[in-house]
């Protein structure tokens, strides 16, 4: 039987001591600080913004049943579109902020933007995680930051955000008018896709891509929370990654 082990553990990535140890029978629950508060705040803001954008976007494409009565008394489409556009702006601004934080934040803040494609351990880790999802190995590896598969999906998600912001602002520029800054910055996107209608179609597909991402993401977050060797959801809330066992690897 092992006793409480209070030795100072050093986080291999940040080089900082990770001293908080827990008490749960025989296991030392080591926790490492991973996500700084701006990342966590950004994450949960994303959840809110994207739900709002997805729902309002859906109703822009397929509007609610016709309102009756005086035209002047209603402004349904106006409000829906307004909320969509305002949230779109929030999304774009918070994305810029997220990039800023990737630069000034800790090592983990950069994970979603840079894939260490030249590192053998990373590919081996990705293969191991894939095997874990195919039930081919008994146990996943421990990861302080994102596991390589998660990192790939986060990277794709960042590109996705960029895509939605560019197509979204291109559509917005059509209302803002020729010569507006939106037009000058994003107007070129429209002939790139063909015409306005095509941009609508691709932007609309983006809504479904989001639903697919959210399904996979939330499923894996919950599944890993239960089945992996480290905490997940609480990590996105407190920033602390807790490991469920003290075996290395």
């Amino acid at each position: 039987m092992s006793t409480y082990d209070d030795e100072l553990r050093i986080d291999p990535v940040t080089g900082q001591p990770a001293i908080r140890t827990g008490d749960e029978g025989r296991i030392n629950r080591i926790s490492v600080f991973v996500f700084e508060w701006p990342i966590r705040l950004w994450h949960w803001l994303m959840v809110v913004f994207l739900i709002v954008l997805g729902v309002t976007g859906y109703f822009i494409g397929s509007p609610l049943p016709t309102t009756t009565g005086e035209t002047g008394e209603h402004y349904v489409m106006g409000y829906i579109r307004f909320v969509h556009f305002v949230t779109g702006y929030f999304l774009a601004i918070s994305f810029l902020f997220r990039i800023y934080w990737a630069i000034v934040g800790n090592h983990h803040a950069r994970e979603a933007f840079t894939l260490p494609l030249h590192k053998g351990w990373w590919w081996a880790g990705a293969a191991h995680m894939a095997a874990w999802y195919f039930f081919a190995v008994k146990e996943p590896k421990k990861w302080v930051g994102h596991n390589p598969l998660a990192q790939i999906s986060m990277f794709i998600f960042m590109l996705y955000l960029l895509f939605m912001i560019f197509t979204g602002f291109a559509l917005y520029s059509e209302g803002a008018g020729a010569g507006s800054w939106q037009d000058q910055m994003f107007g070129w996107v429209i002939p790139l896709f063909g015409q306005s209608q095509d941009v609508h179609t691709w932007h609309h597909l983006g809504m479904w891509a989001l639903i697919v991402f959210a399904t996979l993401h939330i499923y894996t977050a919950v599944r890993e929370d239960i089945m992996s060797r480290q905490s997940m959801i609480s990590t996105m809330i407190s920033g602390e990654r807790m490991f469920k066992d003290d075996r290395p690897e």
Binding site: Y133, W208, I211, T215
Partner: peptide, 24 residues
């Protein structure tokens, strides 16, 4: 159209996730 393609893929992924969850 974007709606049928998108919904099709989303339902497919949803079903795959459900199967995976059950296997887990």
């Amino acid at each position: 159209n974007a709606e049928t393609v998108g919904a099709g893929v989303a339902i497919g992924v949803g079903a795959a996730v459900a199967v995976h969850a059950a296997m887990s």
